[in-house]
Design a protein around this nucleic acid. Structure first.
Lengths: 154, 154, 154, 154
DNA sequence: TTTT
DNA sequence: TTTT
């Protein structure tokens, strides 16, 4: 459709280490579980209330995927910019299910680490840190791989 | 959590007239089905490919809900700014299901109509049009009604 | 710096036809004057007040520049996504001046037309219209040309 | 104008402590100098190049201003969401000058601290830290005070 | 003037 | 399952 925009911006922390799968030709695809927490004061009780939202982030952009695999860990705080995508799948009983994800793929996708040092483990052997060893928000390199959705069993 | 952001920005067209439900105390809650379409040229075949993504938008902000009810129709083009929220529900067979929606509620929610005239019907009797008869992006008035999730059967 | 983001999102109308200049090697650079209008009701007087903000948009991305040149006209409504940049220049009297612009350059830049038909003139001969004859938000192609700032007299 | 959006999203570090001024009736207005840094690899030389952009942020929202005054210091990393605004002023020689700022005022303005602890000084006596002692992105409280632009000598 |  |  002419003139459409589909953009998600999240800042949150990883609830687990990145999950990495690979396509048949060896490119990495990374899944993140990202938490954002909203808190507010209840107008009636005056109590402070808090609600955490969990997001599924899927990184198809090769450069961003490699970076996420190397530098992100459980607890990492990241800025993520991608698009909403809902995919259909079948559960064990053959029923249709839908899962909505934030997809980083192609242009206008960004991943930036917001904590200079990793608080999880595993950084030492890989070196780097900070903004993944580069300093610019990492952007998707333009490869559109929508077909991958099909070939990958989530 | 300190320093978290959860923001969705969409520009698209309504696939149907807004669905309006009401809370027990009479406030409207509006559901929109919003389409965004992405198109690209396939790198291998060179063919133009297109993919439409459908989004569920739920408007809890009273002001925005009233405006959506009055002025939006199937086909309307809108700018929407809200937050991602996934809610759990049970299907008929008692199985847990999850639905992810773009929620307009409280601060930092916006709804702006992008077509000066309605292309669906129903605008004439209500007057208005353009940006709903006002010209500023309509913003959520701060009422947080997370409890509503429970009381409303989607 | 690690973890920095610089993003501007505007939806507004062009106050004039795009201005096009060319680099020595023939690439187009396009300047837009874009208006956004905010309106609100004065809390004291109750009167409706309105304020228009004018933005300078500079398009270095070759693809977006060509599209803007071809399809945008005075009055066109556009969605623009770019970055803030302030450049220094000297006025006639040799005094330092600063101008802040929204720059579309490289990744994470987007330009999308939001009115299907041009309301200014000049579209007929160029054909196109809608979302510039393609339907995906046009993104900057990755060419970083910061040096251009210097070679171009604004 | 119907359907306009004016939004700036920045993540960067403060180059100096917040500057605080007060209106005649005692409300604080805070100015921040915020740096965002973009880096890229030069396509010709292959060298890594870096460019820092400095932004003027003005906080009119009373709640956000108090928070910025209390918890932000030189070096603090923040997420800022506001709107672009260019104001005209006269220099000493009576010449018209323009300054573009990111204004946090009213709805759709947000300020979130992204470093849990202050690295500058001055936090100890004020306590707090983290997300300013609350955990939700702080939002402008809805007070539109555009008139302030006039009454304040920057 | 920040940060890495 | 994160974070404060």
């Amino acid at each position: 459709m002419a003139g459409s925009v589909n953009k998600v911006i999240l800042i949150g922390n990883l609830g687990a280490d990145p999950e990495v799968r690979h396509t048949q030709d060896g490119r990495p695809i990374v899944n993140l579980r990202l938490a954002t927490t909203d808190s507010w004061r209840d107008k009636n009780s005056g109590e402070r209330r808090e609600k955490t939202e969990w997001h599924r982030v899927v990184i198809f952009s090769e450069g961003l995927a490699r970076v996420a695999e190397q530098y992100l860990r459980k607890g990492s705080k990241v800025y993520v910019e991608g698009a909403l995508q809902t995919r259909k799948w079948e559960d064990q009983s053959g029923q249709e299910r839908y899962t909505t994800e934030v997809v980083l793929q192609g242009f206008n996708s960004t991943l930036t680490m917001l904590d200079g040092r990793q608080q999880g483990g595993g950084m030492s052997e890989s070196g780097g840190g900070g903004d993944f060893g580069r300093t610019k928000p990492l952007s998707g390199g333009g490869s559109f791989n929508k077909e991958l959705d099909d070939e990958i069993p989530f």
